[in-house]
Amino acid sequence: MLSPSVLLYIAFVAMPLVAAITLSFFKWDLLTAPQFAGLANFVELATDGTTFRAIGNTFLFAIATVIFHMVGGLLLAIALNRPLNRLLRKVLSAAIFFPVLMSWAAVSLIWRYALDPNFGFVNYYLKQLGLTPPNWFADASSAMPSLIGIDVWHSLGYTMVILLAGLQSIPPTLYEAARLDGAGPVRQFWSVTVPLLSPTLLFASIISFVGAFQIFDPMFIITKGGPDNSTLSVVQDVYYSAFRDFDMGYASAKSLIIVAVILIVTMLQLRLSKRWVNYDK
């Protein structure tokens, strides 16, 4: 019963992982024979300004989106968890959640046009309000914030739904007890909601971070990593090395950065969840 999974695991997880590590010690352009290069790829990596830029960009993207997702998702989840008309709740949550179901490809193309300086409707209304719209994807200073904003639009509903499920698992008797003790809404939030939701919050921020660290589509489709490498992501950097420059060894070495970051974050998660997260229910 295990054999299909074991075979698939060997073929598409274990062997490729070993191969990626092995390849990182070689130079190979897929046309000529691979050549052993020792640590050359890693030496190159240590001095590659573009890759460092990509790592910085990706951390910025991941940290910013996690913060917006957690704060925004929590506020929305709390607002939707109040007594509300059923139909109203259904319509509101549908509108906020629906973008989650759309592909990044569709989302990127829609926003590319929505933020177009000539025919996008966003600039038109900003100007109507007397504001000067930024150059969105055209300026190195505003391109990454624009992508972060699009990610929040696309994925906020996902965090909201997870946190909403977390909120609904908090027993209402705890709020009643807090009210009887004279706790107001703010006190209830900090003394009941936050501690009981902390496992869900930690977990949601970790998956949000790990997902965001692997971001590729919007950068590839909208900005091509530019302007001036200001939106180049790590996965995109790996992609260009492998499938544009056909430098398979160097690309493999770079891709190990992703494993390292995920490994560190997972370790951190285990540590943190032991230290401060309240699992008592």
Binding site: A20, A242, A251, I258
Partner: peptide, 8 residues
Amino acid sequence: QVTVIPIF
């Protein structure tokens, strides 16, 4: 994203 090169 890590195994894509060997699988390719």
